[in-house]
Every structure is written in structure tokens, then in C-alpha cells.
Design a protein around this nucleic acid. Structure first.
Ligand SMILES: NC(=O)c1ccc[n+]([C@@H]2O[C@H](COP(=O)([O-])OP(=O)(O)OC[C@H]3O[C@@H](n4cnc5c(N)ncnc54)[C@H](O)[C@@H]3O)[C@@H](O)[C@H]2O)c1
Ligand SMILES: NC(=O)c1ccc[n+]([C@@H]2O[C@H](COP(=O)([O-])OP(=O)(O)OC[C@H]3O[C@@H](n4cnc5c(N)ncnc54)[C@H](O)[C@@H]3O)[C@@H](O)[C@H]2O)c1
Lengths: 246, 246
DNA sequence: CGCGATTTGTGCACGCCTTCACAAGCGCCT
DNA sequence: AGGCGCTTGTGAAGGCGTGCACAAATCGCG
């Protein structure tokens, strides 16, 4: 099924297999597995069973095994998965061994928080530049980085080989910023501004919209309320996430 | 993620139509439709075609029609959808007519930004309380709200009928905070801390993990790079989102 | 009053994803 | 050496979501 060659035994030097094409749903879960794996590694575990890792990541164990099987056979039957080996594999697949350069546009309320977020660096990303259009903010230092004017973006992006851009500007400016990023060669965008961005097909956009998340929760509140209010009176369950804590 | 069905059909007249059980995928798109509808309403449009609304929301028109058909028939063939009517319907379904009370736990870097976010109020939510465990922060005023100690959460939650809680604490505290929220009667949680929360089945949890989003983008960067580098040399497209701008 | 243009609502087929269930493989213990 | 228990990897089935294509419905106009 997988057209890729799998390295035989650990110890095989950094030879990388052909790039497998993973299902999108699997890709979205790999980061969660990776986080759980790092946690396990810190506690000294050398191997994990699919059951254990699945619990730590909050998913079904069968799903986890199928996901991992897409990367190749990195488990040992009767034993489990080698934690360190699996971490390396997942990080390789996700391209995290490159320590990717990221730039942030819009150093306002939210941008300030993002610029100071330690979770970037610890998970394989380097924020290398901050941009804003407000001259009052240009020149400020945030978390050791100087805020530059957005007009400098193309030059800086080229110098630093920035492939990922984060948009934290007001919605009205988001499309314009996206256009600047795309023109500068950025091929991945994480957008915090509500609204739909229009970009060329070779550019990937992911959106984080806080209000949407809350509205989805609001819907479920509404649903739960209408259920308990109805004759049945059953407080019907609606499980969402469950797993063992640390 | 998860949810459950159970669409009882109360034949007797409630104040409102029977609560439809919508596909989870549809629910996730309704907020985007709503945002697009509000935008249209501001520009003075009275009706929209499925094609027009779909473009504004960045989705396929057939998908949009099917989504809306689940709420009932609120369109007019040959004409389109009445913008105002549809806004009311979607807002009702999402439970946004309740102006839901939200509390925020963890007034740090990120919490500060969230507390000052205007996008909450404008989309049907009221941040009514801020909590932190750090005595150095308790008493501070952020965006007109006083930061309270987390020990006061149960009392405040009851007084204000808080059903939705937002967690913006470090990962190590997230589960403990979730437990406090659940004990206080909160039944929906939006979690910004990486990791899996364990909650009772009647509590809904949604997670926003910035690093995961970046890692997914990183994967696609990796994939795109390996494609262009390989013999085939085909720069295969990988569209993600696309739609016309405003 | 009827007709054509337009747009909704949906039946249907297809593909992706999830989940079950189990054979194959591996290590350990006797 | 052999058997036994444990765990992976995967075939198969079922469910869900998507998108096409079209009949039904409505409006405007002659
Ligand atoms: N604050 C939050 O908690 C929060 C939460 C979710 C989403 N958002 C969204 O994130 C975005 C930013 O929110 P915020 O609260 O930080 O707003 P903000 O107004 O505090 O900051 C926006 C920043 O973007 C800069 N900017 C404006 N136009 C620009 C341009 N063309 N190029 C470069 N920089 C430009 C402004 O100078 C400002 O510094 C908004 O779209 C908002 O809806 C914010
Ligand atoms: N800053 C960001 O841009 C960002 C982005 C994505 C995710 N996150 C995540 O959001 C969370 C918060 O990030 P941050 O940068 O704001 O961290 P922070 O350290 O600046 O703030 C955390 C706050 O939580 C409070 N806190 C700690 N334990 C608590 C408890 N038990 N009860 C109540 N309050 C408690 C602390 O006093 C502090 O004020 C972290 O989990 C982080 O991984 C942050």
C-alpha cells in the first residue's frame, strides 16, 4: 500500500524514505501524537503501545495504528513503538527538522501575545521578523525582535527564507497582507483575522477564528438546553474529548 | 470531533421549531455563513443567491444549499435567500440570541489579548469574568474587568450563569482549571493550552493549538519542497482555501 | 395568463475516514 | 526449542460528507 521503502533497522543513518502521501485527517493528528510522544520521552518511557499513545493523544487506538502505519512500520509487535525513533520519524514527516522561519504581521493585541509565545520555538519554529503598518509601532522591541514596517517584508522574507507567515491584523487588512506575503514568496499562511482569504493554489492557508469556536460551543449549549428542557428530560451525553491525564 | 444525535421531534408546538440535528460539518460552517451574511447585510443586500453566499463564505454552492436545507426552507426559488431572515435563523440555531456569558481563566500573555478582544461582544458573547491564580494579577483591571482569584470562580459562575469557559493557562494547569470549571457547572470549554483534557461526557471541549496549525503548514511545506525537488519537477498545486475577497 | 429564466432543494453516487476484528509477528518464559 | 501472551498492521464494512445534476418552484414579463 505504502509506496515507500521502510528503513530496516534503527541505526540506519539519516537516509530518508520517499515521501508518503498521507490522508489529510492523519496529518492533522500527527502533531498531537508528537506532543504526547515528547511528554512520554520526558517521563523516561522507551516504548509505548498503541493503546497507551492513543490514550495520551485522546484518540482511538485503531485510528492511531492506522495513522502510524501510513508512515511505515516503526512498531514492534508484542512490544510497541520506540518512542525516540517515532519522534524522529514524525518530526521528519512534518518537516520540523528544518526549524522553519516564521514571520508575524500585525503586532497589536493578539500579535503581541503571539510574538512572546514560547511554544513556537519549542515546537520547531523560529519567529524571525515582526511587521506592522503603524509607524507608531515600527521600531518597538517585542520579545527581542524589532518591529519593522511591512514595506520591508519582501526583502526580509527573501533574506531569511521565510516560508510561513502569520496574519494578526484587522480583518480589513488581511487580504492585502496576504497578497504581500504571497508576492514575497511565502507559501503557507496562518490567518487569525475572520474572513476568507484568496490566494493562489500553491499557497496553503489555515484559519483560526476564535468566534467560530465559541459559536460552535454555543450551538451545543443550545442543543443541550433544548434537550433537557424537552419531555424526555434526559441529560443526554455529548462526549467530546476524553483521555487520561498525565 | 464529536457530538451526538438525538433529534426528538416534538410534534407539539414549542415556542420554536423542533431542534434539528445538524451534521457536525454543517455546524462548523454556519458561523462562516453568518459572518458573510452580516457583511452582506451591511452592504445593503436584501437577498443572496446560494452562489453568492457560497463565494463569500469560501465554499461550494451545493454544499451551502445542503447545509441551509437542514435548517429548513428559508430560500425562495428563483430569488435566493432573504439575508435578514437567514441571519435570524442561523443565530437562533447557534444559540447566539442568548448573548452568552463567558469567563476567561489565565490572564497572562494570551489571556490579556483575549480579554481585550472586541470580536467577542460583536459576535454574541459577553466576557463577564477573568480569573487567575497569581495573586500579583488578581485585582488588576483588564478591559474594564477586574481579575479575580480562581477560588471565586464557582460563586461567580453561578451568579452570572456562565456556561462557557476559556482556558488560557499554562498546559500544566489546564486540567486542574477544567476540573474547576466543570465543578462550577460550565458545560463548554475552549482550551488554548496544548494537551488533552479529560472531562465528563456532557461537557464539550474545543481546542485551539497554534503549534498544531503551524506543524500542519510545515508538513505541506515539506511536501511541496520534496515535490519540486524530485525528478518529476512538477510543482503540483495544493489548494486549501480559495474564494473571492470582499 | 402563460412562458421562460432563474435558483432552490435534493436524490444519488463516489470517496474518504473510522472502526472492528483478527491473522501475523515478536519476545519471553518454561 | 517450543509455546504462550501480547501488540502491531491491515482487510473489510459501515458511516459520513461532498459534489453533481436535475426536477420543482417562483418571479418577471410579454
Ligand atoms: N485579540 C484577540 O484576542 C483576537 C482573538 C481572535 C482573533 N483576533 C483577530 O486578530 C486580528 C488582530 O486582533 P488584535 O486584537 O490584535 O487587533 P489590533 O488592532 O490590536 O492589532 C492589529 C495590528 O495590525 C496592524 N495593522 C493594521 N493594518 C495593517 C497592515 N495593512 N499591515 C500590517 N499591519 C497592519 C495595526 O497597526 C495593529 O498593530 C483581528 O483580525 C482580530 O479579529 C484577535
Ligand atoms: N501566548 C500565545 O500566543 C499563545 C499561543 C498559543 C497558545 N498559548 C497557550 O496559552 C496558554 C497561556 O499562554 P500565555 O503565553 O498567556 O502564558 P502566561 O504564562 O503568560 O499566562 C498564563 C497565566 O495563567 C495563570 N495561571 C497559571 N496557573 C493557573 C491556575 N491554576 N489557575 C488560574 N490561572 C493560572 C498564570 O498566573 C498566568 O497569568 C499556554 O498554555 C500556552 O501554551 C499561548
Amino acid at each position: 500500500m505504502s509506496q515507500q521503502r521502510q528503513g530496516s533497522t534503527p541505526g540506519d543513518a539519516g537516509v530518508v524514505p520517499a515521501f508518503p502521501d498521507l490522508p489529510e485527517a492523519t496529518i492533522a493528528r500527527l502533531p498531537e501524537y508528537l506532543r504526547a510522544l515528547h511528554h512520554l520521552a520526558e517521563t523516561g518511557a522507551e516504548t509505548v503501545s498503541s493503546e497507551g499513545l492513543a490514550a495520551a493523544a485522546g484518540v482511538n487506538s485503531a485510528k492511531l495504528r492506522k495513522d502510524l502505519s501510513h508512515l511505515g512500520s516503526y512498531g514492534t509487535r508484542g512490544v510497541g513503538y520506540d518512542v525516540t525513533l517515532l519522534i524522529d520519524q514524525v518530526e521528519y514527516i512534518l518537516g520540523l527538522d528544518k526549524n522553519r522561519a516564521v514571520c508575524l504581521v500585525g503586532v497589536g493585541n493578539l500579535g503581541h501575545a503571539l510574538a512572546g509565545y514560547a511554544g513556537f520555538a519549542s515546537r520547531g519554529f523560529r519567529v524571525v521578523a515582526l511587521f506592522d503598518a503603524d509607524q507608531g509601532k515600527v521600531g518597538d522591541t517585542v520579545n527581542g525582535l524589532v518591529v519593522r514596517h511591512i514595506d520591508e517584508l519582501p526583502q526580509v522574507a527573501a533574506e531569511e527564507s521565510i516560508a510561513i507567515g502569520v496574519i494578526a491584523t484587522p480583518p480589513g487588512s488581511a487580504q492585502a497582507v496576504a497578497d504581500v506575503l504571497v508576492a514575497a514568496g511565502v507559501t503557507s499562511i496562518l490567518n487569525f483575522a475572520p474572513g476568507v482569504l484568496s490566494v493562489p493554489p500553491n499557497v496553503d492557508v489555515r484559519k483560526v477564528d476564535l468566534a467560530i469556536e465559541l459559536q460552535i460551543l454555543s450551538f451545543h449549549e443550545h442543543r443541550k438546553a433544548s434537550l433537557t428542557a424537552l419531555p424526555g428530560g434526559r441529560s443526554a451525553p455529548a462526549g467530546n474529548q476524553e483521555a487520561v491525564g498525565s
